[in-house]
Design a protein around this nucleic acid. Structure first.
Length: 1071
RNA sequence: GCUCAAGUGGCGGAAUUGGUAGACGCGCUGGAUUCAAAAUCCAGUUUUUUCGGAAGUGCGGGUUCGAUUCCCGCCUUGAGUACCA
């Protein structure tokens, strides 16, 4: 019987579908394993051979795990909302749901042909209302949550309202908008409902705000930063402009630190982790406030501590008493801004602990001058609480909770006269800057503000007004693109105003320059020209002094940007200190003197969540008095309405503005016609839709219980499947999908909805499969094509030829080329051959239609079979690497399958022997089991295909047809080539599918050898081999080797200096 | 610029607790089978050579009895990111 892949593959695909062979059970005695591919978007173009690579790898792993006794969850579905379907709808008027459905059908057919073991009963589609009901539900949960930095997690908004009611917002330690106004509990209660909602919106994890967005007029939508490439839209390459719009945003910044920390406990590729780390962009430094000079400065009368005194303090901090240590251990573990310092100096007093941010001093009682201390501290604006040693040692938790209470509900301190003076001073302008190098603060010789900075217009002097305004006008004109392309030109303008250096009191110039970005940090920098190259260039260009604050460093040519080993000089109390010490001491002093504090900054920006698109999830939101209201989750899903046209409305509203049934009847709880908006209880619904990443940020949880109508997934199922054990997909999702999904998972974890805060334990990025393009060479200005070997010295123009017209030996089918519909111009062309054939040139390029190098898997499956395709995709090279596809290579794996098949046949009929296997046969089998098992565990699929080939070659040479060998061999091969394995398995007499057959057990005893073919090296170079028994001692080996004639010949009479013998491995003779 | 990854035959690639470099496959060469072709099978295929050997894993050093593997410096290619204070 001939191996007929077409028949066999169809038969087993049907069998699997009819018997639901790969349906996963939510209850099982077996350990669970969850393998998932990244959510595919069903595009209309169909698959090319690059697409299934990751699916094949994950399928092999899933099948392997089933053989290993795991209950495997391996689902598949579609991320079916998205731009291409909508663009197509705009062009053709076809409903995107319809084209999406058609695309999915094609996609599914292609997948089924390759023999994947997906559990299709769990399929989800993001565009199904039953699915996006839960997307909307999560949105509501985010809206109803705020981030409490003290507990370091998301909490229900009601806990925040409670605090507002009792204490106002001054003690709240939350992640929120920047320009928050403070209010007391009484003020809160006096707010109108709308005012209260406005305030809460500034704290919610998803919120409405006027954001400067990347507006793409051509697409009629807003793009996220990662959807823009080189200043134009990633999709379509349209220009993008900045524009202010009211948008929904997600407060992902609240999770910046946890997203960073979480990377340490997941097994993801380092480059992927690096790019997330990069994207989050944590930088540690200090916020420093510079006052703008107003002419009436006087020197500060701060008490400065000498370096010696500071060292003494440090000593004290290291030698704490037992009670002191106990309390400190509790205090320092407190998270968030309520950061305590120990043994700190306030005025002339030394206090035990102080929280500068909350103006709270904690002391042990029993100090002699308690009354005087309290009075002084209160005058300085500090509250004081005291505990005895015993209180701390007996119940430190109680003490800490009292401290917490004191932080949250501070006693009002009577303001002293001195404070009034300070308040008066505050009327002058201040510039906040963030710096990662507070140690270089004495090197500041000017400040630079972004041209857009709000203070610019206020501080610019009349004399400089014209110049500054001209500069601002010029920068505004420059497009983002220009500014990006041109980083070399130095430009700026002097405002005429001066700032006061907070330490030295010196006046320093304030400039504006477009190298400072308005939307990063505070939009202002303290320029340290000697330590920062951009500041240096700016100073040089405008002749601003460049003070040197580094010991023994030459800065005449360039700034000194190294930190390590640098010693600070000319810097008052920082002089003589190394980078790290200076940095700490600088922050310490700033905090003490009250014009700065240590701070961690993140580059990660809140994510815009609105899209002006039709084909996406509608928001469960309506507007009452201009304030957004969530629709109760009972009434979800809010189904996407029908529209006439998928374009924005004529007055510039998003496409949902075209819907006629798009208003919320708050009394009857349903979507009604817009005509009813006149009614008092009917409100307009949100017109934006959600972005592409909404539906894909939690789908992996939904697969655990995909048809549950009451919950995202039942608690039992979530607890059973927990997280993805193996996630495979492309690296292009590094900072999009994979960051947002981690954010949502952490949020759902905080709310107790999911049991783990990282959704994928291990992740692999599969490499891209590239195309091998073929080129023909046309002599310039003629219609003559010259074969590759003859082009040298001639002026030729390379032209892409369709790869299907070229054979494995790079020979072009000239007639087919001439008759190809795309080559009408070359119908009568002349071809100059070499040795009777036309040879093409080859080059590796991205697989793309325009390069005529796309290979369709359907054709491969038709000609060679799915098993060959699966084997060959794996055989190409390591999964993670990019590698070129060359169809000719597939004949190797194809003939392997034929050889495998032949082992089970004697001529035309199936025949296996029940005789006992020989030693050699067992050795081949167990060698193979060992290697294949290791390879799969290490995701080294390419090498296991080689191993199969070696095994089949060896068993063929041994003429092996023993059941004892061939039965386990079928199981070994089955994850890779499941169709042929199932067929052989059933021929071997089995009635059940091979998919859950136990993986063969490796037994080391079959690999034990009695002799070793030793490599004999001279000075490390192998010269010949010598077969010796393995039980020889070192001395016996040496004797045998040294007396060998080839050794004597090699040595040419010299006496070896040394003989290295590693028994069972190698012999090396030195000399 | 910065960060990361990778450089091994004509091609895809294999080999790392440091121990026989080039497994396996493609392609190529020769042979068998065939009227012929396809398919199949057998042998060879890093370079060089005076046929004894010798050299060789991007380049230059180092550690070691021994380095594709470890360390230092450089070159090239690819990916990500970019006026981030």
């Amino acid at each position: 019987m001939q191996y007929n892949h077409l028949e066999i593959e169809k038969k087993w695909q049907k069998f699997w579908a009819e018997n639901q062979t790969f349906k996963a059970s939510n209850e099982s005695e077996k350990p669970k394993y969850y393998v998932l591919d990244m959510f595919p978007y069903p595009s209309g173009a169909g698959l090319h051979v690059g697409h299934p690579l990751g699916y094949i790898a994950s399928d092999i792993y899933a099948r392997y795990k089933r053989h290993k006794g795991f209950n495997v969850l391996h689902p598949q579905g579609y991320d079916s909302f998205g731009l291409p379907a909508e663009q197509y709808a705009i062009q053709t008027g076809q409903h995107p749901a319809k084209t999406t459905e058609a695309n999915i059908t094609t996609y599914r057919k292609q997948l089924d042909q390759i023999g994947f073991s997906f559990d299709w009963s769990r399929e989800v589609r993001t565009s199904n209302p039953e699915y996006y009901k839960w997307t909307q539900w999560i949105f509501i949960q985010l809206f109803n949550s705020w981030y409490n930095k003290d507990s370091d997690k998301a909490e229900d908004i009601s806990t925040l309202e409670k605090i507002f009611k009792t204490a106002g917002n001054t003690t709240v330690n939350a992640v929120c908008d920047e320009d928050i106004k403070s209010f007391s509990a009484d003020e809160w209660k006096a707010f109108s409902k709308t005012e209260q909602e406005e305030v809460l919106l500034q704290y919610r994890l998803t919120f409405l705000s006027d954001t400067e967005v990347n507006w793409c007029p051509a697409l009629g939508t807003v793009l996220a930063n990662d959807e823009i490439v080189n200043g134009v839209s990633e999709r379509g390459g349209h220009p993008v402009v900045r524009k202010k719009m009211t948008q929904w945003s997600m407060r992902i910044s609240a999770y910046a630190q946890r997203l960073l920390d979480g990377l340490e406990k997941i097994d993801w590729p380092q480059p992927l982790k690096d790019s997330q780390t990069n994207w989050i962009g944590r930088s540690q430094g200090a916020m420093v406030t510079f006052k703008v000079a107003n002419g009436s400065e006087k020197n500060s009368s701060e008490v400065k501590l000498s370096y010696k005194e500071l060292e003494d303090l440090k000593e004290l901090r290291l030698n704490l008493s037992k009670a002191e240590t106990t309390l400190w251990d509790e205090l320092k573990n407190k998270k968030g801004a309520a950061k305590f310092r120990k043994k700190y100096t306030i005025g002339t007093f030394r206090v035990d602990y102080v929280c500068l941010a909350k103006h709270l001093i904690v002391e042990f009682s029993g100090k002699e001058d308690e009354v005087a201390r309290t009075e002084f501290f209160n005058n300085e604006g500090f509250n004081v609480i005291r505990f005895t040693n015993e209180e701390v040692l007996q119940n430190v938790v109680k003490v800490v909770s009292e401290i917490n209470a004191a932080i949250q509900f501070p006693k009002k301190i009577e303001k002293t006269v001195e404070k009034e003076v300070v308040l008066k001073d505050e009327k002058s302008y201040k510039i906040d800057v963030f710096t990662t190098r507070p140690d270089t603060i004495f090197g500041v010789s000017f400040m630079t503000l972004a041209p857009e900075h709000e203070l610019v217009s206020k501080i610019t002097t009349d004399a400089q007004k014209a110049e500054v305004e001209a500069y601002i006008k010029a920068t505004a004109k420059r497009s983002e693109r220009d500014r990006m392309a041109d980083v070399k030109t130095i430009s700026g303008a002097f405002t005429g105003a001066y700032a006061i250096h907070p330490f030295s009191g010196d006046k320093i110039q304030i400039w504006i320059g477009d190298y400072v970005l308005a939307n990063y940090g505070t939009g202002a920098v303290m320029a340290v020209p000697c330590g920062d190259q951009r500041d240096y260039d700016f100073a040089k260009h405008f002749n601003i002094p460049i003070p040197n604050i580094f010991e023994g460093v030459d800065i005449s040519e360039a700034a000194h940007t190294d930190k390590d080993g640098t010693v600070i000089a000319n810097s008052d109390f920082l002089s003589g200190l190394k980078y790290k010490k200076a940095l700490k001491l600088a922050i310490f002093e700033m905090e003490k003197r009250g014009f700065g504090y240590g701070k961690i900054n993140y580059r990660l920006r809140d994510a815009v969540f609105s899209r002006q698109r039709y084909w996406g999830e509608p928001f469960p939101v309506y507007y009452k008095d201009g304030m957004p209201q969530m629709i109760d989750e009972k009434y979800l899903p809010i189904v996407l309405p029908e529209v006439e046209k998928y374009l924005p409305t004529e007055d510039g509203k998003p496409p949902l503005g075209n819907a006629t049934e798009w208003a919320w009847d708050s009394r009857n709880k349903k979507v009604v016609s817009n005509e009813k908006l006149k009614n008092k209880t009917v409100y307009p619904l949100e017109l934006n839709t959600m972005p592409g990443w909404a539906g894909s940020s939690y789908y992996f949880n939904r697969y655990m219980d995909p048809s549950n109508e009451n919950e995202i997934a039942s608690k039992e199922n979530l607890d059973y499947w927990k997280e993805i054990d193996l996630y495979i997909g492309g690296s292009e999702h590094a900072t999009g999908h994979l960051l947002y999904a981690r954010f949502w998972q952490k949020f759902l974890f905080d709310k107790g909805i999911v049991p783990v805060d990282e959704f994928a334990k291990k992740l692999i990025n599969q490499g891209m499969i590239l195309g091998t393009s073929a080129f023909v060479y046309r002599e310039e200005g003629t219609n003559t094509f010259i074969s590759k070997g003859l082009v040298e010295g001639k002026k030729v123009q390379p032209i892409h030829a369709d790869v299907s017209l070229v054979n494995a030996s790079d020979e072009l089918d000239v007639e087919a080329f001439k008759n190809h519909p795309l080559n009408q111009d070359y119908k009568n062309a002349e071809f100059i051959l070499e040795n009777g054939v036309y040879k093409v040139g080859r080059e590796v390029e991205k697989m793309s239609k325009s390069k005529y190098n796309v290979v369709n898997p359907d054709d491969i499956v038709e000609q060679y079979g799915a098993d060959s395709l699966r084997l060959f995709e794996m055989f190409l090279g390591p999964l993670e690497q990019a590698k070129p596809w060359k169809t000719s290579g597939i004949s190797g794996v194809s003939s392997f399958l034929k050889k495998l098949w032949k082992l089970y046949f004697n001529g035309d009929h199936f025949e296996v022997s029940d005789a006992e296997a020989t030693k050699d046969e067992l050795k081949v089998l167990h060698k193979t089991i060992k290697k294949v098992e290791e390879d799969i565990e290490n995701f080294s699929f390419n090498t296991s295909v080689s191993t199969f080939m070696i095994a089949v070659n060896e068993l063929t040479a041994l003429k092996c047809n023993k059941r004892a060998i061939l039965e386990p061999l079928a199981i070994l091969v089955s994850p890779y080539a499941p169709h042929i394995a199932e067929e052989l398995w059933s021929l071997l007499g089995h009635k059940e599918s091979i998919s859950t057959a136990d993986f063969p057990k490796f037994e080391a005893k079959h690999l034990v050898e009695s002799a070793k073919n030793y490599p004999i090296s001279f000075n490390g170079k192998m010269r010949f081999t010598l077969e010796l028994p393995l039980d020889l001692s070192k001395d016996e080996i040496e004797a045998a080797v040294m007396s060998h004639e080839k050794t004597i010949a090699q040595l040419e009479g010299r006496t070896p200096k040394k003989v290295i013998i590693v028994p069972g491995k190698i012999v090396n003779i030195v000399g």
